[in-house]
Design a binder for these strands. Structure first.
Lengths: 149, 149
DNA sequence: TCGGTTGTTTTGACAAAATCAAGACAACTG
DNA sequence: CAGTTGTCTTGATTTTGTCAAAACAACCGA
């Protein structure tokens, strides 16, 4: 409907081709449902995809999300107590802020610079690949409604 | 068997009492099965507890672990792709190193000091309660066996 | 030491999230 | 356009953990 919807599909298709993946309706549809800054779980994605592609199954969504995450086109995060979430922002090692009230996830830039995030003080001989930082707290909305003083 | 087993039980009982929890066999048994530095999932705990307390049920273990975690006597961590793990080291905000090969979890001290771990660069108005850092990589054993060059 | 209250454990059913397997099908290659 | 390869559909299964209610045990006070 938007005038550049075709452009977006072409762009997504190019990303898929670049990753060596076949371009399919399901995969384009999955790309479509992600808005910028959104963190969606498999069920959210399935629900939205099913609206435009009624033959889709939950397993297809799992498969697509898994394939895209493996290819580095999507990032999978698994906050404690929630189903796995996916986001389209990849390539930077940003971290996450999870609201303990409403479970909403926000992006946040790296804390104090890349180096500090990637080098623990004792590494036990570990070969560290990635560091993941999750902050837990109350988002402005939940803080306001929970403590109206 | 060990000469100070009684002492350990007394100590555990004191911790429980201090937290306002009743002292029960199940709870003491759960404390018993944790060795220092170990990270056990609910099923590990159940298996070990069942060896000495055959009437125990899985749900009792979930209940005990939940109660102890709520009381701050145990810490619950939930690494992506694994069941929840519990550890006895509480009170310091240490972090974790997870092996992508064998899923073993190691403790690691805070990266560059408490402050850096608790203040993301943009907080979005969040009231941050805790920060959780997880490092992913290969432990010495897995690095050695996977790449014997 | 003995009841009474309260919190804990047992039992069994249930729910959510994700995975596995096999056949049908569609996208890319030449 | 046909073949090959990878993807999707369908349905069952597994794993992890929760819920609810009744039986039971620990702690308090007399």
């Amino acid at each position: 409907m938007s005038p550049n919807a075709t452009d977006e599909r072409e762009q997504a298709a190019a990303l898929l081709r670049g990753a060596g993946l076949k371009v399919t309706e399901s995969r384009l549809a999955v790309f479509d449902v992600f808005g910028p800054g959104e963190h969606l779980d498999a069920d959210d994605v399935f629900t939205r995809v099913a609206a435009t592609l009624p033959t889709t199954s939950r397993q297809a969504v799992y498969g697509v999300l898994g394939a895209l995450a493996d290819a580095g086109l999507l990032r999978k995060i698994e906050p404690a107590g929630s189903p796995a979430l996916y986001e389209t922002r990849v390539g930077d090692n940003h971290h996450h802020l999870v609201c303990t009230g409403c479970s909403t996830v926000f992006d946040v830039g790296c804390v104090v610079g890349e180096a500090a995030c990637l080098t623990p003080s004792e590494s036990h001989g570990f070969r560290i690949a990635t560091a993941e930082v999750t902050f837990w707290g109350l988002c402005p909305d939940c803080a306001a409604s929970g403590e109206p003083s």
